[in-house]
């Protein structure tokens, strides 16, 4: 499980670092968050008396990732309305 989490995390970081498309970068961020979720679930089985703290925190992370994705997509829509494309290299002006 930890190896899977590390693999997903590495894929997410590689996606963030190598992509120009803003939506692809957002997908990489989501991969990183899901890797953290896998880690929480993997370590949750070692809590005493069958505690569910790790699993509940995973749900919190999923909710926060959804909120962050909504805001990020709204920003990407704003970038597209101003620049005509979602290339992060082109979005280098504060205001036109």
């Amino acid at each position: 499980m930890l190896l899977l989490s590390a693999l997903v995390f590495c894929c997410g970081v590689y996606t963030i670092l190598t992509r120009k498309n803003a939506v692809s970068i957002l997908m990489g961020v989501e991969l990183v968050l899901n890797a953290a979720n896998i880690n929480f679930v993997a370590f949750a089985q070692y809590t005493r008396n069958g505690g569910i703290h790790g699993n509940v925190f995973t749900i919190f992370v999923i909710l926060l990732a959804a909120a962050e994705a909504a805001v990020a997509l709204a920003i990407i829509i704003g970038i597209y309305q101003n620049f005509g494309k979602v290339d992060v290299d082109q979005a280098d002006l504060m205001k036109e």
């Binding site: 509940v56 909710l63 959804a66 909120a67």
Partner: peptide, 30 residues
């Protein structure tokens, strides 16, 4: 045990969605 935490996160999610809808709106310039 986690009722208040989930309620707070749901309010945060609602605020995030409202903010996203506000950011993504298209202004009508006359």
């Amino acid at each position: 045990d986690y009722l208040f935490a989930f309620e707070a996160v749901s309010v945060l999610l609602l605020a995030a969605l409202v903010g996203a809808a506000f950011l993504a709106r298209k202004e009508v310039r006359e």
